[in-house]
Write a protein that binds this DNA or RNA. Structure first.
Length: 417
RNA sequence: GCGAGCGUAGCCAAGUGGUUAAGGCAGUGGUUUGUGGUACCACCAUUCGUGGGUUCAAUUCCCAUCGUUCGCCCCA
């Protein structure tokens, strides 16, 4: 086949699937609006430096997954691989922190990473995220988790589990990192190659290796929870107690670490047992150092991102989402009738009814069949006789009853029922 | 980036080294006039993702390539 096809890792979202996306978007919008989070829309590409500095040079995302390019003005740009860096850049650039101590923001949009595509993992994918900037209060952590939890359960998802951990502050992490290096070094030759590599680069990440032999060694590794400073510990305790008060079930996973450098204190993931290897639907945590690292004032922050492709995969396993019900289906055939049908359709639509106009010119039986399949409540049948008289056939598709009515009568009948 | 599987019509799917590539769903036309069901009839892949090779002969075997799926990596 010589026709052009969608690029690897990109896809079109077509009819049945799009209803899930629309549902998820409307639920998200409602919940976030009620929580008084403000939507923010940032560019799909940013200067490469923003991600290199923000996400961390040593991360895989920056190291090998970014869509970077030089534009015609010799600038190095990158399609955003995640949403937080751009939001923080906007916060700093517009000095949003000066308008209010705490900013509560949310975003959704396409992100880009050069990865091996798989179910629920595309090169162009979509995330929904929230960021609370300017509060170190444990309530901020608990609030964002509560919002994620409400959002997911509102969508009807069960079998979700919140995994929770604290990675402490910068000093805690440093001390823990050293402890891990000390622990793993004697086992260095027994680690899998990836983990061996991380020993010097990013030892925390050895913890969530899936390699069986590495896992065995990890079993007895020191726990981050033993390296938390009293303040970090207190913060963590408060988050746990707030979640308990909210009735949000969670389990502590001291081996939960995040892939991005900017995380501190609370780290969490919401996972589904129904997703195979791409189990994490929502991931987030605190990132107290990021704003300062990108040149802004010292600003504590917490947020999460939800992978929408994975969420849609889950939703599709639940109930079927249908398009909104159809009120009218306009059937017409004939030289006088067909032009008239559009006028009728527009009038009914203006009266507030969802109305489909059949443009096929097919025979009446065919069009009526389609009206039934489309789930319409009424069919309006217009032939040349009706077009001339101004009286249309209004057919109730459930009962099969049909009457001859004017446009005004037709609308008032529909309004009454 | 690594390992493995898969790729036949809009969808599902059988198939074999050898004249015309099953079947089902959907679609279209029809069984005389402008009305939903059922039944019946007809039509619907010059071609098996693409390119190359082996062979007298390939959808079938081999190689490459593209896409996709699963796992690793990573992440949401």
């Amino acid at each position: 086949m010589s026709s052009v096809q969608a690029s690897r890792g990109t896809r079109d979202i077509l009819k049945p699937e799009i209803y899930y996306w629309q549902k998820l978007e409307s639920v998200a919008r409602r919940i976030l609006t009620h929580a008084v989070y403000t939507e923010i829309r940032t560019p799909a590409f940013e200067s490469t430096e923003l991600f290199a500095r923000g996400i961390g040079e040593a991360t895989d995302i920056v190291g090998k997954e970014m869509y970077s390019f030089i534009d015609r003005g010799d600038r190095s740009l990158t399609l955003r691989p995640e949403g937080t860096a751009g939001v923080v850049r906007a916060l700093i650039e517009h000095k949003l922190y000066a308008q209010a101590d705490v900013q509560k923001l949310w975003y959704t949009g396409a992100m880009f990473r050069y990865e091996r595509p798989q179910a629920g993992r595309q090169r162009q994918f979509h995330q929904l995220g929230v960021e609370v900037l300017g509060s170190a209060d444990p309530r901020a952590d608990a609030e964002v988790i509560a919002i994620a939890s409400d959002f997911l359960s509102e969508l009807g998802l069960t079998e979700l589990v919140v995994d929770l951990n604290s990675v402490g502050n910068a000093e805690d992490r440093l001390a823990y990192r050293q402890a891990l290096v000390d622990y793993f070094t004697p086992y260095a030759d027994r680690l899998d190659p990836d983990s061996f590599d991380r020993l010097s680069r990013n030892p925390l990440r050895i913890l969530d290796s899936k390699h069986p032999q590495t896992q065995e060694i990890v079993q007895a590794a020191p726990s981050i929870l033993d390296y938390l400073s009293p303040t970090s510990q207190q913060h963590f305790e408060q988050v746990k107690s707030l979640l308990t008060d909210l009735g949000i079930a969670f389990r502590i996973d001291p081996r939960l670490v995040r892939g991005l450098d900017y995380y501190t204190h609370t780290a969490f993931e919401i996972k589904s047992s129904q997703l195979g290897a791409q189990a994490a639907v929502c991931g987030g945590g605190c990132y107290d150092r990021l704003v300062a690292e990108l040149g802004g004032p010292d600003t504590p922050a917490v947020g999460w991102a939800i992978g929408l492709e994975r969420l849609v995969l889950l939703l599709q396993k639940l109930d079927e989402v249908k398009p909104p019900a159809l009120d009218f289906y306009i059937i017409s055939r004939g030289e006088q009738a067909e032009p008239k049908s559009l006028l009728v359709a527009q009038n009914i639509r203006r009266a507030g009814f969802r109305t489909e106009l059949d443009l096929s010119g097919a025979k009446f039986d065919k069009q009526i069949k389609r009206a039934v399949t489309a789930g319409a409540r009424y069919a309006v049948i217009i032939g040349d006789t009706e077009a001339a008289s101004g009286n249309f056939q209004l057919k109730d598709l459930a009962s099969g009853q049909q009457q001859s009515v004017t446009l005004l009568e037709l609308i008032s009948i529909a309004s009454l029922t």
